[in-house]
């Protein structure tokens, strides 16, 4: 392993994924070091969500070649649940509704699964409620949400807030947040961005997939990448996001 490799949280090299013979990830490369925040932007259909799902281990997106090294572990050989327990978290662009399963039992089960896999003691419902309190406050989530079925009947913005609540509960090492800012009103965006910022620290990494520079006003990324046709075609700082806001993607894509 190279010196760089030891320092990185995740290192993705030569990643290729196809669906029905259509290449969606094309020799994709990315490296995130602990403490870094990366933004990935790019036109619709460029493969951003696919990248997130491949990292999380979605079975519908088989990887044909490439490696994903996460904290020295070969991620691609792991099941989605093993990846999650190792510290990978994906915030869904379209969070899934789970009828009949209450948000609180779901969150508690997720946390307790993570805890017991680390040899920590599980939290009972009362301890869990305590554990949740400040996280609910941080995201201004009404405790009534906990008694409702996971995401069922939640508004678009509520679903996104619920994703960040899960992130806060699980405290992952690497979060890939797929358009968590889409569909949020101005106040919710501020709350969610504030939450993500609070959850960011020197040991974890965050990949923000977004279409809007606005989110980056609240969270300053270390890198801004442009993804196109399954690979990163340009990397810069926050200025790049501002420039994209101004000029769109044509000037990069047609280069």
């Amino acid at each position: 392993m190279s010196a760089r490799g030891i320092l990185s949280l995740i290192e993705i090299k030569g990643l290729n994924a196809k669906i029905d013979d259509k290449a969606i990830l094309n020799d994709f490369e990315l490296r995130v070091a602990p403490g870094e925040i990366h933004a990935i932007m790019g036109p619709n259909g460029s493969g951003k969500s696919t990248l997130a799902k491949v990292i999380a281990g979605h079975p519908a997106y088989p990887v044909s070649s490439g490696i994903i090294n996460f904290q020295g572990v070969d991620l691609l050989s792991k099941s989605p649940e093993e990846r999650a327990r190792a510290g990978i978290f994906m915030g869904f662009q379209y969070p899934v509704e789970i009828p009949g399963v209450t948000n609180s039992s779901f969150l508690r089960l997720a946390l307790n699964t993570a805890r017991s896999s680390k040899g920590e003691e599980e939290l009972d419902p009362i301890e869990f409620e305590d554990y949740l309190q400040d996280k609910l406050k941080m995201l201004d989530i009404d405790p009534d949400f906990l008694a409702r079925s996971v995401n069922e009947g939640f508004s678009g913005g509520e679903k996104k807030r619920n994703e960040i609540l899960q992130m806060a509960v699980l405290n992952p090492r690497l979060s890939i947040l797929d358009e968590t800012d889409s569909g949020l009103d101005i106040d919710a965006l501020r709350l969610v961005a504030g939450g993500i910022k609070k959850l960011s620290n020197k040991d974890n990494g965050i990949i923000l997939i977004t279409h809007y520079q606005r989110l980056l006003n609240y969270i300053k990324p270390d890198f801004v990448h442009v993804m196109y046709k399954g690979s990163i075609i340009k990397t810069g700082g926050v200025d790049l996001a501002l420039e994209l806001e101004d000029r769109g993607y044509d000037w990069i894509v047609s280069d």
Partner: peptide, 12 residues
């Protein structure tokens, strides 16, 4: 739905 739960660490 199964994948969503798995992605939160819950076994298949």
């Amino acid at each position: 739905e199964i994948f969503y739960l798995q992605s939160r660490g819950i076994a298949f």
